[in-house]
Amino acid sequence: HSLRVHINGKDFEVHNADEHVIRALEELIRRGADADELKEFLERWKG
């Protein structure tokens, strides 16, 4: 899957995101994670 996440006016393109990554991202958003947390998660995932 390809996923586009809009954080703090920046678009993050997440390519080849598997279900696990997408679910983790949705969980963060549901918990009310702020932009920094989401960005950190995506950067860690992209490795």
Rank of each mutant, 00 (worst) to 15 (best):
H1G: 13
E37L: 07
R30P: 00
E19V: 12
E37D: 13
K46S: 15
N16S: 09
V21R: 02
L38D: 00
I22Q: 03
N16V: 08
E40L: 11
K10D: 05
I7G: 01
I22C: 02
E19G: 07
R44N: 15
E40G: 10
V21I: 13
R30C: 07
F12Y: 15
L28C: 03
H20D: 13
E26T: 13
E13T: 10
G9F: 01
R31C: 02
H15E: 11
R31W: 09
V5S: 00
D34N: 12
E26M: 13
A17R: 03
G32W: 02
E27T: 07
V5D: 02
D36H: 10
G32A: 05
D36R: 07
R30I: 10
E40Q: 08
A17F: 03
K39T: 14
G32M: 04
G47W: 07
L42S: 02
D34G: 12
D11G: 04
L25M: 06
F41I: 07
F12M: 03
F41E: 09
K39L: 15
K46N: 15
E26W: 13
E40H: 08
F12A: 01
R23K: 13
D11I: 15
D34K: 07
H20L: 12
E27G: 06
V5P: 01
E13M: 11
D11P: 09
I29Y: 06
I29R: 02
W45V: 07
A24Y: 09
D18E: 11
I22D: 01
V14E: 01
L3S: 02
F12W: 09
V21M: 12
A24C: 05
I7F: 05
E37W: 04
V5Y: 03
A33H: 05
W45S: 03
I7T: 02
D34Q: 11
G32L: 03
L28R: 02
F12I: 08
H15Y: 11
W45E: 03
V14F: 12
R23P: 03
S2W: 09
D36W: 12
N16H: 11
A17D: 03
K46T: 15
R30F: 13
A35D: 09
V5E: 01
G32Q: 07
D18N: 10
K10Y: 10
R30T: 10
V21D: 05
G32Y: 04
N16G: 08
N8F: 06
E37P: 01
K46Y: 15
H1Q: 13
I22M: 07
R30Q: 11
E40A: 06
R4G: 10
D36C: 02
N16K: 05
G9Q: 01
L25Q: 00
E37V: 07
V14H: 02
K10F: 06
E27L: 08
I22T: 04
E19C: 09
R23Y: 08
K39G: 11
V14W: 04
A24V: 10
D18V: 04
I29A: 04
D36K: 08
V21K: 04
E13Q: 07
A24I: 09
K46G: 15
I7R: 01
S2M: 08
R23C: 04
K10T: 11
A17M: 11
E19N: 09
V5R: 00
H15Q: 08
H6G: 02
H20K: 14
H1V: 12
G47P: 14
I29D: 02
F41N: 03
K46D: 14
N8A: 08
L25D: 00
R4D: 07
L42G: 01
I22L: 09
E13R: 03
I29F: 06
R44M: 15
A33I: 06
K39M: 15
G9I: 01
E27Q: 10
E26A: 09
A17Y: 04
H6P: 03
K10G: 02
R23Q: 10
E13H: 09
G32S: 03
V5Q: 01
H6T: 14
I7E: 00
R31E: 13
I22H: 04
L42E: 02
R30A: 14
A33C: 04
N16I: 09
A35P: 09
D18I: 03
G47N: 13
L38E: 00
H1E: 14
D11A: 11
K39S: 14
D34R: 05
S2E: 07
S2Y: 12
G32V: 02
L28G: 01
I7A: 02
F41G: 01
V14N: 00
G32K: 05
H6V: 13
R44V: 14
D18H: 08
F12N: 00
R23S: 10
H1W: 02
D34M: 07
A35N: 09
E43M: 08
H20P: 08
V5C: 03
H15R: 09
G9K: 01
L38K: 00
A35S: 12
N8L: 06
L28V: 03
D11N: 07
I29S: 03
E27I: 07
E27D: 13
E13F: 12
L3V: 14
L42M: 11
S2G: 08
I7Q: 01
R4S: 15
L25T: 01
R4H: 15
